[in-house]
């Protein structure tokens, strides 16, 4: 029964699936972004996108958000994973509790944080009842871009740190205990054990977690819409606006390609930055 072709045959369904539902739409999008209705190759959609006044703001906001959120999430998740792995009892319970936000959609997460920050929200009524403020503050007003940014950051960190945590906890569990014992015997402090053993041996998990998070960070949308409306434009929001409000799929497609290019660029950067030297793999 076994033949050389069998593995390829088994891979065929998933390959077909990817072609139909990923590659084909991708080609369509690329076509829309580069080709006019009359079938000529053009860069006019990209020009339109890039010269629009919101493009730079959206690009910078998206990059800044990713830059502010992802490193913080990685550090926080590393710390949480270390705590969880050091626990003798109740480890699973804590892990379940910490991963609850994973079960909440990003729009719902945005609305939860909106309920905290809005004019009549929990934060305002809390501070008011304690007498810290006389009247409610409009945290999310258009003149307070900084607080909107911070609120989105908080919501994103609350919502999506758990996925990093899960990946890192699994990765840490794979590091044999004896390496820590050896490091301990040879004089490494707790901190040194973390930097000299845990971090380097966690590279593959860190790589996965960071790529996943960075890609998702560039696609941030619902949380931003819930908390900032259109006050804080991001790339994904612009795609939506161009597609549905301005009814111009070609410019929307151009935007989509920009998001794709940034994602690929950062993925390659992370893969290169966290590469394992040949031979150093376990």
């Amino acid at each position: 029964m076994y033949s050389r072709k069998l593995p390829y045959l088994l891979l065929l369904p998933s390959a077909l699936f990817l072609c139909v539902f990923f590659l084909y739409p991708f080609v369509l999008v690329a076509w829309q972004a580069f080709v006019t209705d009359t079938g000529e190759l053009t860069s006019e959609y990209f020009m339109e996108m890039a010269t629009h006044w919101k493009f730079n703001t959206a690009l910078i906001n998206t990059l800044l958000l990713a830059l502010a959120v992802v490193p913080f999430q990685i550090v926080l998740a590393l710390y949480m994973a270390t705590l969880v792995n050091g626990m003798k009892r109740g480890r699973d319970l804590i892990l379940y509790i910490w991963t609850i936000p994973l079960g909440i959609s990003d729009l719902a997460a945005g609305i939860i944080w909106l309920a905290i920050f809005e004019q009549t929200g929990f934060l305002n009524s809390f501070m008011q009842s304690l007498g810290f403020i006389e009247e409610p503050i409009g945290f999310l007003g258009y003149q307070n871009k900084g607080t909107i940014f911070v609120a989105i950051m908080l919501a994103e960190i609350w919502r999506a740190t758990a996925i990093v945590l899960v990946i890192l906890v699994a990765g840490m569990g794979l590091i044999p205990k004896e390496y820590y014992e050896a490091a301990e015997v040879f004089g490494a402090s707790r901190w040194k054990q973390f930097t000299r053993i845990t971090l380097p041996m966690l590279k593959p998990s860190l790589q996965t977690a960071m790529i996943l998070r960075v890609i998702l960070a560039f696609e941030v949308f619902a949380v931003v819409v819930a908390l900032g409306g259109t006050n804080l434009p991001v790339l994904m929001g612009e795609i939506y606006t161009w597609q549905y409000d301005l009814r111009d799929s070609s410019v929307a497609a151009a935007y989509a390609l920009v998001v794709l290019a940034i994602s690929i660029g950062f993925t390659l950067l992370i893969m290169w930055g966290l590469r394992t030297p040949k031979g150093a793999r376990v």
């Binding site: 044999p176 050896a182 015997v185 004089g187 490494a188 402090s189 380097p200 041996m201 590279k203 394992t276």
Partner: peptide
Amino acid sequence: APRDRGIAMVFQNYAVFPHLTVYENIAFG
């Protein structure tokens, strides 16, 4: 703590760090 006892140890499964070269392994302590 083990690190304060002035000892060195050879483990049954060697515990040679896979992410370090032989040089850095020997130099670890």
